[in-house]
Amino acid sequence: MQSIIAIAGLAKTYAPRPPMGAFEALKSIDLDVRRGEIFALLGPNGAGKTTLINIVCGIVTATSGTVLVDGHDNVAEFRAARSRIGLVPQELHTDAFETVWKTVSFSRGLWGKPANPAFIEKILKDLSLWEKKDNRIMTLSGGMKRRVMIAKALAHEPQILFLDEPTAGVDVELRRDMWALVRRLRDSGVTIVLTTHYIQEAEEMADRVGVISAGALIVVEDKTTLMRKLGRKQLTLHLHQRIESIPAALGAHALELRPGGQDLVYTYDTNTDRSGIAALLQDVGAAGIRFTDLQTKESSLEEIFVSLVSKRS
């Protein structure tokens, strides 16, 4: 089946802004987003996620490369391309003096859709904004403003929804509501592209994940495959007494003794049902090894990038 978004050789170099020189934010990106999936673009701050999304949506001009949205070139056939897209940008940009109802209805009109109060009502109710529909936006909290931005993006019934860092600075309740909404939208056939710098978020939501770092896509993979690669955790046991080597009784476990002989490190996969921690601790106890402290640590995104990049080269 044809990809709903097909990006080929997309590059962006931002013009110099003295005192800063020109900046290459994207280096020849190739990416296909499948129809109806939830795609997560995972990468640290400054990786180029927003730049990529903004080029697809028409806010930033690409230096080179092409973007096809449902088969339509996003520059030459911008009307066809953009009419399919709804965007919730990273920053909160709202019309402070307008009411919720007016600003959301305006978005629908801007996309050339005839007014449909019943549909707007449904969106506002879905986003728990109905009671606030006649309030001016400046009177709303940050979380409510973000809901308004989502409502604006959905007002014209897009086939593709871009969510740029949707959970940055968002409270638990909105996060939960938002994920529920995203799943409902996906079930109704909407393709969703979201960006995040949290691995857990990509893991929780996405069908597929693209990892982007320093303007380059490092991997694009099914979430489960990728999480198997990424989702590693380490358990460190700080021992009561120094040991020379790992006792034979613990030979069945993937253990590593840190130099100094006082820290035993166990690396395990967070994605399996059985991490092996219980069995390990039991065996450690049976071997008569006592420990004074224990800690677990997840590999950081940076560590993962480093390992992915080194694996690739």
């Binding site: 806010i59 009307r79 391309a81 009419s83 965007l87 940009h93 019309d95 978005s107 801007l110 050339g112």
Partner: peptide
């Protein structure tokens, strides 16, 4: 100034 121009630029309007 407010940044709401993003919507105008991403809308299917000439």
């Amino acid at each position: 100034f407010t940044g709401t121009i993003y919507e105008l630029l991403s809308a299917p309007v000439s």
